[in-house]
Amino acid sequence: MSKKLLSGPYIVWMVGFTLIPLALIVFYGLTDKAGAFTLENIMAIAQPERLNALLRSLKLSLVSTAICLVLAYPLAMILKSLKVGRGSFIVFIFILPMWMNFLLRTMAWQTLLDHNGVINNILRFFNLPELKIINTQAAIIFGMVYNFLPFMVLPIYNVLVKIGDDTVEAARDLGANSVQTFFRVILPLSMPGVISGITMVFVPALTTFVISDLLGGGMILLIGNVIEQEFTFTTNWNLGSGLSLVLMVFILISMAILAKYDKEGEGAAF
């Protein structure tokens, strides 16, 4: 018996429940209700309301990805400098929040950020200006950063801990100062993790419909909300699939970039 046969169930499963379903999205997206070929479902993205939703999603997800990167890189450096192992308590603390239901955590921010919420009460106590971000795009960015930050920290951390001290010391011995060491040695070596983190934050941020629902007060539509509504309210699957195909173009671009920079899968988060 060949050992390769052990992969059989997995291959059958992936073909049946990953490849065929994806093929169905392509099929529905490129046909009308009668089953005839059409590009209308894809062209439907040009309608102003949908186009605005897509542009808004792109803007918010790019901004939140950038904020995540700026927050996560120093964090990963600090975690590495603590010289504690992968399964250690401190790293564990940064992963743990991911395991409380994210809908509830996001909702809790709704309460905390509210005009009369805890944060504004504290700010008022110190006579500081109040935060007025709930139900705005800023609140959605806040929610994205909150929910996806661990996905940026973990891959960067995983790559950073693999960079040996001897590499850094060699750079210093050869006369590089700490800024040069960072930009010419550490940063280039950590690129697989950075790219992996960027895709792992960008893709869910671009496609979310829950965060905009909870923190945007239901008034700010993202492309995820538009697609979700096509499937749950108007049940126009062809249109919904067509719009998903447009979305998948962006996902594929990020996957291609990741594949180019992270060939060995070094930047994997888990």
């Binding site: 490849l19 379903p21 994806l22 869910p204 496609t207 699957w237 998903s244 998948m248 996902i251």
Partner: peptide, 26 residues
Amino acid sequence: MMGMNNIPLMNADIVTGISLMLCFIA
């Protein structure tokens, strides 16, 4: 195989969800 393994990991949840729903109903 490892590439195929990456599809559900990298794909957006909304696309995975919709594609499975379409598949079940179809």
